[in-house]
Design a protein around this nucleic acid. Structure first.
Lengths: 188, 188
DNA sequence: GCTATTGTACCGATCGTTCGGTATAAACGC
DNA sequence: GCGTTTATACCGAACGATCGGTACAATAGC
């Protein structure tokens, strides 16, 4: 069998980029094809379920990356403050300072968002759970930890919207900076 | 001229609903037609510029509503706290407790978002400016007022995303509740 | 009768999807 | 070692449906 031009992971990375730039309905098969270098029919070889299948696999791929690249490091050794800092660095890099959109948000905005309800819910809760654990590790009470985690994700997502809407990426930077110092603070 | 079945304002209201439910690309002319009860040719009579024209007029319509229904009342008599409460009530009602999406967010997510850049920027800054004024009126320092206003919009937008993504509208309610008590607080 | 509005019919383009088929390389039989 | 089979990787061409948009005649209210 012929060696693939692109690994499956690379294909998924490029699809992820396209989906999060254009959104689910905005990313046409023609664009997804151009982004991957695979012609439309070839995409159907990897994703027999079509566009929907692509989106699902892309979300699973992202989840996997987050688990190994973000959530697991959070459970490793290190002070909560250091680990929070590392997480925020990763977030800042992933969103390129607010210039790149969030896949989850784009999928929420999809017309067929009901189809992606479960993976979306899973992704958001996993993210919040990770932050909550960090807060707990830092000694915050349960209820506080939960609301801090919720607020964390809310503000990252909101900052991405406002940054894109105002063309002012400073709001994303300021939000990240504020989170850096406030998430684990004993009182605020 | 024959009396229109729907006033222009009503048509714009229905278009607004459709756009914010389906998004810009997700809202097809067929759906916009069904939502307004106007056949395509009629839509093009009112909106010669087509879909793009509709979106622009819808945004202008929303802006107008916000100015008279939200921003101006904010400048009228009343304690800042009362006026903040009224604004949050309006927001909560407008988004139906987080169940309905934000038009601005949907337009940000549009593929042709560059076309709507100016009205989007205008809408976001008007909103933030209104909150900032309120904070100033409450006696907060300039820099604090600005960052509170920014954070206000960030959190409302973010809460809408997370609520939709997790199917948990409690996070929207909790965010609104928190804003109610924290926005004008002298320190937090 | 004039003008605003609508219904019908239509356009080319693009949408997501399917199918028939080719090229390559590993696996297998001998 | 050699020819055959088989699984995988990929592509070109076309599908029906729908997209946003247009042309124009019929209709309705003044």
């Amino acid at each position: 069998m012929p060696a693939p031009l692109l690994s499956k992971a690379e294909v998924l990375d490029r699809l992820l980029d396209t989906f999060r730039e254009k959104g689910y309905e905005g990313a046409s098969l023609a664009e997804l094809s151009a982004a991957t270098g695979l012609v439309k029919s070839s995409l159907y070889h990897y994703f027999p379920g079509g566009k929907e299948d692509m989106a699902e696999q892309v979300m699973a791929h992202l989840d996997e990356q987050l688990v190994t690249g973000v959530y697991e490091p959070l459970r490793a050794a290190g002070t909560p403050a250091k680990k929070l800092g590392a997480m925020l660095d990763t977030i800042d890099a992933f969103y390129e300072g607010g210039r790149k959109a969030c896949l989850l948000e784009r999928m929420c905005a999809s017309v067929d968002r009901t189809r992606f309800r479960r993976p979306l819910r899973r992704a958001f809760t996993a993210w919040m759970d990770a932050v909550e654990s960090l807060c707990l590790e830092a000694g915050l009470p349960r209820t506080v930890a939960r609301s801090r985690a919720e607020d964390f994700v809310v503000r990252v997502e909101g900052a991405l919207i406002v940054a894109a809407g105002t063309d002012d990426y400073g709001v994303f930077a300021r939000t990240i900076k504020d989170l850096r110092s406030s998430v684990l603070a004993p009182n605020r």
